[in-house]
Measured scan of single mutants.
Amino acid sequence: DVEPGKFYKGVVTRIEKYGAFINLNEQVRGLLRPRDMISLRAENLNVGDEIIVQAIDVRPEKREIDFKYIP
């Protein structure tokens, strides 16, 4: 289970104008929005990159997770 405030290692699987999709594993995926990329620009991300993200909002009923990148 993903808990708000905890840090996780994930892999960038898709990049859109509104953010990057980060997979923690095959069943868990969330969104890293540009406003939550402190000191990281979306254009510096590539599909396949491994990054550490913090879960900031977890909505299990919608199967949605928002992440924040903190260097």
Rank of each mutant, 00 (worst) to 15 (best):
D1F: 15
D1W: 15
D1C: 15
D1R: 13
D1K: 14
V2H: 04
E3I: 15
E3H: 13
E3L: 13
E3M: 14
P4V: 15
P4L: 14
P4M: 12
P4Q: 11
G5W: 06
G5N: 05
K6Q: 09
K6D: 02
K6M: 09
K6R: 12
K6L: 08
F7N: 05
Y8L: 01
Y8A: 00
Y8D: 00
K9C: 15
K9D: 01
K9W: 13
K9I: 13
G10E: 01
G10V: 10
G10N: 01
V11I: 14
V11W: 12
V11P: 00
V11K: 09
V11Q: 05
V11C: 08
V12E: 00
V12G: 00
T13K: 04
T13I: 08
T13H: 04
T13S: 11
T13E: 05
R14G: 07
R14P: 00
R14V: 07
R14Q: 11
R14H: 07
R14K: 10
R14F: 06
I15P: 00
I15C: 05
I15D: 00
I15S: 01
I15E: 00
I15N: 01
I15Y: 01
E16S: 13
E16T: 15
E16W: 13
E16F: 13
E16C: 14
K17E: 10
K17C: 10
K17Y: 11
K17F: 10
K17V: 12
Y18R: 07
Y18T: 05
G19K: 06
G19S: 04
G19A: 05
A20V: 15
A20Y: 13
A20K: 01
A20N: 01
F21G: 01
F21N: 01
F21V: 11
F21I: 14
I22L: 03
N23L: 11
N23S: 14
N23A: 14
N23T: 13
L24I: 14
L24T: 02
L24Q: 00
L24Y: 01
L24G: 00
L24F: 05
L24C: 07
N25F: 08
N25S: 13
N25I: 06
N25Q: 05
N25G: 10
N25C: 10
E26L: 11
E26Y: 12
E26P: 14
E26S: 15
Q27K: 14
Q27C: 14
Q27H: 15
Q27W: 15
V28L: 14
V28H: 09
R29V: 14
R29L: 10
G30E: 04
G30F: 08
G30C: 09
L31F: 10
L32W: 05
L32I: 07
L32A: 02
L32E: 03
R33M: 06
R33G: 06
R33A: 06
P34F: 15
P34I: 15
P34L: 15
P34N: 15
P34R: 15
P34G: 11
R35Q: 12
R35T: 10
R35K: 14
R35S: 11
D36V: 07
D36G: 07
D36C: 10
D36T: 04
M37I: 07
M37F: 07
M37V: 07
M37Q: 06
I38Y: 09
I38Q: 12
I38G: 15
S39L: 13
L40D: 04
L40K: 05
L40H: 06
L40R: 04
L40A: 06
R41M: 12
A42V: 15
A42H: 14
A42T: 13
A42W: 15
A42F: 15
E43V: 11
E43S: 13
E43R: 10
N44Y: 12
L45P: 01
L45K: 04
L45N: 00
L45A: 01
L45C: 09
N46T: 14
N46Y: 11
N46G: 09
N46E: 12
N46S: 14
V47C: 06
V47K: 02
V47H: 02
V47L: 10
V47I: 13
G48Y: 02
G48M: 02
G48A: 01
D49Q: 10
D49C: 08
D49H: 05
D49S: 06
D49I: 05
E50P: 08
E50A: 11
E50W: 15
E50H: 13
E50Q: 13
E50K: 12
I51S: 00
I51L: 09
I51T: 00
I51D: 00
I52F: 08
I52K: 03
I52Q: 03
I52A: 02
V53P: 00
V53I: 07
Q54T: 05
Q54W: 09
Q54N: 03
Q54G: 01
Q54I: 11
Q54M: 15
Q54Y: 12
A55H: 02
A55N: 01
A55T: 05
A55V: 15
I56F: 09
I56Q: 05
I56E: 02
D57V: 12
D57I: 10
D57S: 15
V58K: 03
V58H: 05
V58F: 06
V58N: 04
V58G: 05
R59C: 08
R59P: 02
R59Q: 03
R59I: 03
P60C: 11
E61P: 06
E61L: 09
E61S: 10
E61G: 12
E61V: 07
K62H: 08
K62N: 09
K62L: 13
K62P: 05
K62W: 07
R63T: 07
R63S: 11
R63A: 12
R63Y: 11
R63D: 11
R63L: 11
E64M: 10
E64S: 06
I65G: 03
I65P: 04
I65L: 05
I65D: 04
I65W: 09
I65S: 03
D66A: 09
D66V: 13
D66L: 15
D66H: 11
D66G: 07
F67T: 03
F67S: 04
F67L: 09
K68I: 10
K68Y: 07
Y69G: 02
Y69S: 02
I70W: 13
I70L: 11
I70C: 10
I70K: 04
P71S: 13
P71C: 15
P71Y: 08
P71V: 09
